[in-house]
């Protein structure tokens, strides 16, 4: 197997790497680029811990070949905060104790951010269905959903002020 050269953009930074043809995007992020915030909980798309966005679409990075990332825009949990400023979702997750062990947290935050970008005012049911692909074994989801709803409300408030 000869390695493939990939040119891509990760969290806004132009990035190049070599990967095996059968290597997943998750493995490339974690093992080649040092971006270990995306987690492998299952490797089969059932837990969502590896969630990233590719060209704006929420995907499981374990179910995508690294080679497919050529010319793509990839964002990971490492790209969520802007400098010192946490994203409102990140802040609300801490404030609401929406994590216990924290292993699912990066994937859930990436997924929740994608939700609020396409639906700034989700109902509780919409949030629960959107996040159904992100398993959390610690919290029973209660505080996660509360944190997402609270962050959404705050972000809507900010948007109103901005306009």
């Amino acid at each position: 197997m000869s390695q493939i050269h990939v040119s891509t953009t990760i969290n806004g930074d132009a990035t190049e790497f070599l990967c095996e043809p059968d290597e997943t995007l998750l493995d490339a992020l974690r093992d080649r680029l040092g971006l270990t915030g995306s987690k492998e909980g299952c490797g089969t798309g059932d837990c969502g811990a590896c969630s990233v966005t590719v060209n704006g679409r929420l995907v499981c990075s374990c179910l995508m070949l690294a080679a497919e990332a050529e010319d793509a825009e990839v964002t990971t949990i490492e790209g969520m905060a802007e400098g010192e400023a946490l994203h409102p979702l990140q802040r609300k997750f801490i404030e609401h104790a929406a994590l216990q062990c924290g292993i699912c947290t990066p994937g859930i935050l990436v997924a929740a951010k994608a939700l609020l970008e396409q639906n700034p005012a989700p109902t509780e049911t919409e949030a629960r269905y959107w996040l159904a692909g992100n398993l959390c074994r610690c919290t029973g989801y209660d505080k996660i959903i509360r944190a997402v709803m609270d962050a959404a409300a705050e972000m809507r408030g900010e948007m109103r002020r901005a306009s």
Partner: peptide, 9 residues
């Protein structure tokens, strides 16, 4: 079929 993530693909 599958999650939001799966729907993306």
């Amino acid at each position: 079929i599958g999650s939001t993530q799966i729907q993306g693909r």
